[in-house]
Amino acid sequence: MVEITSEDNRIVFKPEKNLTGEYTEKLKEELSKTLDKKIVELVIDLSNVELIDSTGLAVLVATHKSIRQKEGELKLVNVSEAIFDLFKLTHLDRFFNLN
């Protein structure tokens, strides 16, 4: 359900569906696991994500902060237009590293 590929210090996370409801919980757990490892770069590929709910957003924010604490970096890639707009409107585009 979450496709994870890792190479060197880079882990790519690719959620397979929208970050809503219970799925966010699962995602959070998965992400927590990866954080145990030493990573420099965490990439979340949002190609399959059209919607993010508030908790989903909170998870992304929390992930971002956690990685920062470990001096790593979170990158969001393949952000859909809708989600990009959302980030832009909430000015989270300045918070996240978007690609």
């Binding site: 927590s32 929390a62 902060k65 604490q69 000015h91």
Partner: peptide, 24 residues
């Protein structure tokens, strides 16, 4: 027009300490 928006990222906590269950 949203002049500015500030999501309180602090209150999201971190993955270790995930706060938002009731407030974001």
């Amino acid at each position: 027009q949203i002049l500015d928006c500030h999501v309180d990222t602090e209150s999201a906590g971190s993955l270790e300490n995930f706060l938002p269950g009731n407030s974001f």
